[in-house]
Design a protein around this nucleic acid. Sequence first.
DNA 1: TTGCAGGGGTCAA
DNA 2: TTGACCCCTGCA
Length: 295
Amino acid sequence: MIYKGLRITEDTGTITVRGVKDFNPVHIFECGQCFRWKRQQDGSYTGIAKKKVCNVKLEGESLILSNSSIQDFIEIWFDYFDLGRDYSKIKANLRKDEIMAKAIDFGWGIRILRQDIWETLISFILSANNRIPMIMKTVEEISRAYGSEIYSGETIYYAFPDDENLAGTTIEQLEICKGGFRCKYISHTSILVNSLNADLKLLHGLNTAEARRYLQNLPGVGPKVADCVLLYSGTKQDVFPTDVWVKRVMEELYFKREASFREIQEFAAQYFGELAGFAQQYLFYYARENRIGVR
DNA sequence: TTGCAGGGGTCAA
DNA sequence: TTGACCCCTGCA
């Protein structure tokens, strides 16, 4: 069948989508936006999202999704992989200097996933002063301890728990997942979200500045985490999450000197505008993979 | 083998 | 503005 310009065929739990452009699983899953997709022996990625398990690989111009149906694709994965967005156009608009050109050529297949905002919130609270393998491990442990089981063949996977599941646990019960000092933030944030004192659905109705402030009222959420949550949940694209890697690449390649967080934010808003979030993702991936700015 | 520094930020003083 | 913070890894 044809769905929004993509030709889809299904064969015993595997679907093939032809005509997908600007899509590279390595770039998408290794660019720091998600924590539940794991590279397999054959180079494909298996992940848990939206209470489903899926395996993704690219063969030529065809996207192969295993353990999935056409219905899942239409209801879940089309949106999750942001396939309705024209990344070629975004890249053309962002290719305004040599630095961006290099970053885009390097991470040409990046797409910003439209992840569940609740899971993204908790995952990025965990990211504070932490490393990716550790964040992945803790998210996995939280899911194993408090999430629902998903059966796929012989294997049991665990969905990320809902807010009521985490709100019902104590800080001590969360600490078995090795989140360290971030567990108290997760516990308090879960209670606020579950009680609807912090309703994440309201974020869609707010402008970017308001949405940022709203999120920053939650324990464990500062400017960086708020921007990550907005960007990686597909809620806002005009944010520029600035962590040490983005700071390094901006200082080394654009400012040619030390620059403050505020300066970088203002420059990004002015220079990249509505596309700041996409620019950030290309720059971050480029900087991290090439260790730009590391002494 | 053991010990220590430091990491993709946030909070509190 | 600055130090502390859990846990783990890398490196003397």
